[in-house]
Nucleic acid binder design. Structure first.
Length: 798
RNA sequence: GGGUCCGUAGUCUAACGGUUAGGACGCCGCCCUUACAAGGCGGAGGAGGCGGUUCAACUCCGCCCGGACCCACCA
């Protein structure tokens, strides 16, 4: 253990007397910062429990930390960076004077977990008893969770790890179910059978928010139909396998070519069925052949047309993604197989005019990436359409950081056209707490306050309210994962459990999250919390961009450009990793990841160490009459003030790009390159009197202290270490931003000084002089006031 | 079709309407100057296009071109 205890009795002011002949000894002795200190410092923080949240504090800041979703290994480097930046929010808020509630949680429900478990253990949910499958999921989760927690800790997160929560815990699921019961009792939940997104691989209905569109190369097949009076017409379709469910053929009434067909019948090839030919404005004459067939269901266009035209649906695809008996000889084939087969048959029959390859925006399941099918199934819905106006109001009131991401939410809300199907035909998720009367089918919902598993538990009812029967069947479906992850602000604030705490902590101050889950996590949370509390779930939404690879492309396992954060953290340390994330791009923009970038960030850490090491050799002077400072001291302090103000603005808007880049710029390109060199002779006492020397010491330490504080939220380890070694026994993370830098503003000389220093260096180089060699050069009038120091710095002779 | 963001050196990224357009990586050259060769100094190299507003435009406005993403009923 290094000597950096908070109770250290080190006397930081016992440097030898400051006479100029003394060789100064740096307080920081190691010539390099060793990342092994990070672990020791982490331990100290844990022991001293320095981040304790006080719910009775005057200023409370609560973070609705995203519980990360364990969906595989390695954990995404962008996620690791994201969490380290959430930690910066917590640390910045503390230093801005708040008591910070920073919970840590794990999202452990849903299809992603199940799919990972299926791959990990080579099992299938559908071929295994439910109970057994759940055990596998839990095991997979525990493995992934352990790794994620380890990374979060190694990054120095100042959250509450002792009380971390899991969304699959009894406690959490109990709340999820209680909120369902509440909404059920208020009539916001209903059953309906209607065509919906269905993933044949996951074998469940999914919500629109879980659908992602992908460009897939698709065949656009031009098929010959005949009309009842034997005229040949051509129809272009991407779904020839759905011919069996074709119930109408449409043309545009404006289309001179086809006008005459309206009112006639078309004969569906292979099946020989007659369907009406109708005119509809939706048909675009330019697309394909200008004639469209309507099937149940190729897409939502079909769904709408079936409803509008009163057509009778024919179910062509079943729950396993195979063709039904309606498809005749193709029954039992998978959709893609049936498509190939029917194209083949049509070709044989001479019914294909041509086949075009087109790129088709295909709706796919965000978990399995398989094309979804539209299949009518009975599902449970939560009303959301009637809340659209209120949600838009909330979207407009919510403070967005950065502002421009507000539009993502507004776009999504405007695009909602259906209520939210919340039931999933899956296992590892919160069970829907409903029992049905075996005799009359009436659904019964229990009282809240307990975790229910209807698929294996006896119904908590004596008899059916409707028919009096005493037998019940438990619901086997579970909730959509977003149904439980959308109540994190309620869970962390102890909703329905601790009224007093809830009042203090809810709404949360800030919701940090990535822009990729605006339409899901952000939207659903706002919806659910509004429905349950009538309030906006948080004051601010803090939205980060995507973390992409070096070339700006999205990372994916299939592309092989995934970066594992663990080796980077191990090699360069948490601070370097954190500094990379903060300095890589401004809040809300996409940012790039590569080892090189982290390595560059680590150079700044080294630089900071060396600067601190230099400063640490001089006695700490805290009381000094600032009016006796030299011009160069006043100059660097004026620049420090500018930097300080900018950084504080950055911290107040939780945009860490600002302090990270501002401090780096100041520290490296002004303080180290110019001020340290200008004041070096003086600090060592060569050619200056004692008061002038003290002025330098005072300034060096003042800058150092403030810079450390400004960097503390971003790089908490090294700043803590240096702080304790140089400035005290109380953690830097218990300090607040309360600096007063009131100094005559000399920052207007900055450019001239840099210019002059550069000129001298150039001149010496030109003349082949070493930097310490004397030189004759005249100091420009504008910076005459710095004459004495400049002369000492460059060894300028008259 | 609508929307959001973005086009600054080979790459990445800054800058109240007035700057010799700043910095980082990479490249070239020189240097161990008592914090730092994981460094210092120097050097080469840049505004997608066209208009407009203005005394003044990288910056504001419009259009075009190009890229990323989101939304929408192109089968």
């Amino acid at each position: 253990m290094v000597n950096v205890g908070y109770n250290s009795s080190e006397d930081f002011n016992t440097f030898q007397s400051n006479n100029s002949s003394t060789k100064f000894e740096p307080k920081l002795q190691e010539t390099r910062w060793s990342i092994s200190h990070e672990k020791e410092i982490w331990k100290l923080w844990q022991e001293k429990n320095i981040y304790k949240f006080d719910p009775n504090a005057e200023k409370i800041f609560s973070i609705d930390t995203p519980p990360p979703y364990p969906s595989g290994k390695p954990w995404h480097v962008g996620a690791a960076s994201h969490y380290s930046q959430i930690d910066m929010i917590a640390r910045a808020a503390r230093m801005l004077g708040y008591s910070v509630y920073f919970p840590i949680g794990m999202d452990r429900n849903g299809i992603g977990v199940e799919r990972y478990a299926e791959k990990r253990f080579n099992i299938s949910l559908h071929k295994m008893p439910r109970e057994e499958f759940l055990k596998y999921c839990k095991q997979a989760l525990d493995e992934l969770e352990a790794e994620m927690l380890e990374i979060m800790k190694s990054l120095g997160l100042s959250g509450d790890f002792d009380n971390y929560y899991q969304t699959d815990s009894e406690e959490y699921r109990k709340l999820t179910q209680a909120t369902f019961i509440e909404l059920w009792n208020r009539g916001l939940i209903y059953f309906d059978t209607r065509p919906n997104n269905y993933c044949p691989v996951c074998k469940t209905t999914i919500a629109d928010a879980e659908v992602v569109y992908e460009e897939v190369p698709t065949k656009l097949v031009y098929i010959k139909f005949r009309t009842s009076d034997n005229e040949e017409i051509v129809i272009a379709t991407t779904r020839p396998e759905l011919l069996c469910s074709c119930q109408a053929v449409l043309i545009n009434a404006e289309d001179e070519r086809y006008k005459h067909l309206v009112g006639k019948k078309a004969i569906v090839p292979i099946y020989g069925r007659e369907v009406p030919i109708l005119a509809h404005p939706i048909v675009k004459s330019e697309f394909g052949s200008g004639i469209e067939m309507v099937c149940s269901y190729g897409d939502y266009n079909d769904v709408m047309l079936f409803r509008e035209l009163g057509l009778k649906e024919i179910i062509a695809i079943d729950e396993d993604g195979r063709m039904t008996n309606a498809a005749g000889k193709y029954a039992g084939l998978k959709v893609e197989e049936a498509r190939e087969k029917i194209i083949e048959d049509l070709k044989q029959a001479g019914l294909i005019v041509k086949i075009e390859q087109i790129m088709h925006r295909t709706p796919t399941c965000e978990r399995s990436h398989n094309p979804i099918e539209i299949i009518p199934m009975q599902e449970i819905y939560l009303k959301q359409l009637e809340f659209k106006d209120e949600m838009l109001k909330i979207a407009n009131e919510l403070e967005f950081l950065p502002e421009f991401h507000r539009q993502l939410l507004i776009n999504w809300i405007n695009s909602i056209t259906k209520d939210w199907p919340i039931s999933r035909r899956r296992y590892y998720a919160t069970e829907i707490p409903i029992w049905y009367c075996k005799k009359c089918g009436k659904p019964h919902v229990p009282k809240p306050g307990k975790y229910y598993r209807p698929w294996k538990e006896k119904a908590p009812f004596e008899k059916c309210e409707a028919c009096g029967s005493t037998e019940f069947i438990g619901e086997t479906r579970t909730f959509d994962t977003w149904f439980d992850s959308s109540i994190t602000p309620l869970f962390i604030s102890r909703f329905m459990k601790d009224e007093e705490f809830f009042k203090k902590v809810f709404p949360a101050t800030i919701r940090p999250q990535g822009k990729d889950i605006v339409r899901t996590w952000l939207y659903y949370t706002l919806l659910r919390c509004y429905q349950l509390t009538g309030k906006r779930a948080f004051q601010k939404a803090w939205i980060t961009g995507y973390c992409v690879d070096e070339k700006g492309e999205k990372m994916s396992k299939s592309k092989g450009n995934v970066i594992d954060p663990v080796p980077l953290i191990q090699k360069y340390g948490a601070d370097a990793f954190r500094f990379w994330g903060a300095s890589e791009s401004s809040l809300g923009f996409d940012f790039r990841a590569s080892e090189k970038r982290v390595e560059n960030a680590s150079k700044f850490i080294t630089k900071l160490w060396n600067i601190a090491r230099y400063v640490s050799q001089f006695p700490l002077v805290e009381d000094f009459d600032e009016s006796k400072l030299l011009p160069s001291d006043k100059w660097i302090l004026s620049e420090l003030k500018k930097t300080y103000d900018k950084c504080l603005d950055g911290y107040k808007s939780f945009n860490f790009f600002i302090p990270a880049t501002e401090v780096r710029e100041f520290l490296w390109n002004l303080f180290a390159n110019h001020y340290i060199e200008m004041s070096k002779k003086r600090a060592y006492g060569e050619g200056f009197n004692e008061e002038e020397q003290k002025a330098a010491w005072y300034t060096l330490h003042k800058v150092m202290k403030i810079v450390l504080k400004l960097l503390a939220p971003i790089i908490p380890f090294i700043t803590e270490y240096i702080w304790l070694k140089m400035y005290g026994t109380k953690s830097i993370h218990l300090q607040v931003f309360d600096e007063r830098i009131e100094i005559e503003d000399l920052s207007s000389y900055t450019e001239k000084l840099i210019e002059f220093n550069s000129l001298v260096w150039k001149e010496k180089k030109r003349k082949g002089l070493s930097l310490k060699d004397p030189i004759k050069i005249s100091i420009p009038e504008e910076i005459r006031m710095f004459e004495k120091e400049l002369k000492a710095m460059h060894n300028i002779e008259e």
